[in-house]
């Protein structure tokens, strides 16, 4: 009896060992090997990193690169994750990507001092330089695009496409010029108070 038991258990032990080896190999080696393959083959596109960093200046570039590499370079997936959770997983300390030298520190983008030079003012944008000094006009006494006087606000809609376009343009300009005049008056008033 004991003899027979031994002969039975040797092959079954071998079988078990083989099975265990395959299982261990499957669980512990397949996943890391594919993901590391992906990480190596898919370096994050610097343009994508910049794009996300501009959208979310609070997120570090290292986190962005780490997340992009893990999801196969999908900007959408990374954006979704930031929007959904407000942050990204911190990369392991060993992860030290090469951050492009041009990349600014994350807060610099939102510095109000930097905004100053970035935008052109409304007068320049809408080409209103010549109209700033013209006398104050209320919308009702302005002249229509065809030169006909007395086009009031109630007649803002025209069935003619070009006329509509011109009316819209005029309404925009009036809005900006009125704001500019008000501001000028306010500044004058303040200077008089000061002086």
């Amino acid at each position: 009896m004991p003899d027979q038991q031994q002969t039975l258990s040797v092959p079954s032990l071998l079988l078990l060992a083989a099975f265990a080896a395959i299982t261990i190999r499957y669980f512990f080696f397949t996943k890391p090997s594919t993901s590391s393959l992906r990480t190596n083959s898919r370096a994050a596109n610097p343009a994508d990193v910049e794009q996300i960093a501009t959208m979310f200046p609070q997120i570090g570039r290292r986190e962005i690169i780490w997340d992009l590499q893990r999801n196969g370079g999908s900007v959408n997936a990374t954006t979704e994750r930031i929007l959904g959770r407000g942050s990204l997983d911190p990369p392991p300390p060993s992860f030290q990507p090469i951050i492009p030298p041009g990349a600014t520190p994350s807060t610099a983008n939102t510095n109000p001092a930097q905004l100053k030079s970035k935008h052109i003012d409304l007068i320049t944008r809408y080409n209103l330089g010549s109209k700033i000094s013209s006398p104050l006009s209320t919308p009702s006494e302005g002249s229509g695009p065809s030169g006909s006087p007395g086009v009031s606000q109630t007649q803002a809609w025209s069935s003619n496409k070009n006329e509509r376009q011109a009316l819209l343009k005029r309404r925009r300009e009036e809005m900006i010029l009125n704001a500019r005049r008000k501001l000028e008056e306010m500044e004058r008033g303040r200077l008089q108070q000061d002086g």
Partner: peptide
């Protein structure tokens, strides 16, 4: 103040 300064700048003042 930041906002008000921006408003002035945007109107070219």
């Amino acid at each position: 103040k930041t906002v008000r300064d921006g408003v002035k700048r945007s109107l070219g003042m």
